[in-house]
């Protein structure tokens, strides 16, 4: 019996890994390609400088709050360095991993829009939506799909699948 909690954690850590752990390898590849592809293409559009985190009070300094990171965070390991770098910066340490996903200097952030124009916004949208899509994948790993394999179109609108921790209650 595969643990749905471990599957959900693995699905957060690397998109598709939870499904691979469950033996659903096709879906694992699909989620990994779609979600990581969207995330890294978006990150590249923003010159690898649009995913970062800073620890500040969002009620006091709402203009400096990294609004998109709570969405990007759900991509897992690929976005986790931003949280680590933000924490290191808050504690007064130097960034690690050659500054990967560390908050760029303000002059660099200010220069992104004039240099890349709309690509910064589109890249931010791509990376944020990639994270939010992984929430769907995490839920799929935890609870299984809404509809099962063998039911027909008519049944598919009403009959839930018998996969996941609540399968016994639903079957």
């Amino acid at each position: 019996m595969r643990s749905p909690y471990l599957a959900a954690f693995l699905a957060w850590l690397v998109p598709g890994l939870g499904h691979y752990y469950q033996g659903r390898r096709g879906k694992a590849i699909l989620y990994a390609v779609c979600i990581l592809g969207l995330y890294f293409v978006g990150l590249a559009m923003g010159d690898w400088k649009i995913v970062y985190w800073r620890w500040i009070n969002p009620f006091k300094y709402s203009d400096k709050f990294c609004l998109y990171y709570p969405g990007q965070f759900w991509v897992g390991l690929a976005a986790l360095p931003a949280l680590i770098q933000g924490t290191l910066s808050y504690l007064g340490h130097e960034p690690i991993l050659w500054g990967y996903l560390a908050e760029p200097p303000q002059i660099v952030i200010n220069g992104l829009h004039p240099r890349l124009s709309k690509l910064v916004e589109i890249g931010t949208i791509y990376t944020t939506i990639a994270g939010l899509l992984n929430v769907l994948a995490i839920y799929d790993a935890f609870d299984g799909p809404a509809y099962s394999d063998d039911e027909d179109e008519a049944q598919s609108d009403t009959q839930p699948a018998a996969i996941g921790p609540t399968a016994g209650a639903r079957a």
């Binding site: 096709g26 879906k27 699909l30 989620y31 779609c34 979600i35 592809g37 969207l38 293409v41 949208i125 791509y126 939506i129 899509l133 769907l136 994948a137 839920y139 799929d140 299984g144 799909p145 809404a146 509809y147 099962s148 394999d149 598919s156 699948a161 996969i163």
Partner: peptide, 19 residues
């Protein structure tokens, strides 16, 4: 377009198991 396609594929994959 790629954004819409990826959203659609991931959403559908999270709802169904049959390819």
């Amino acid at each position: 377009l790629p954004l819409v396609i990826v959203v659609s594929i991931v959403y559908s994959a999270s709802r169904h198991e049959a390819w």
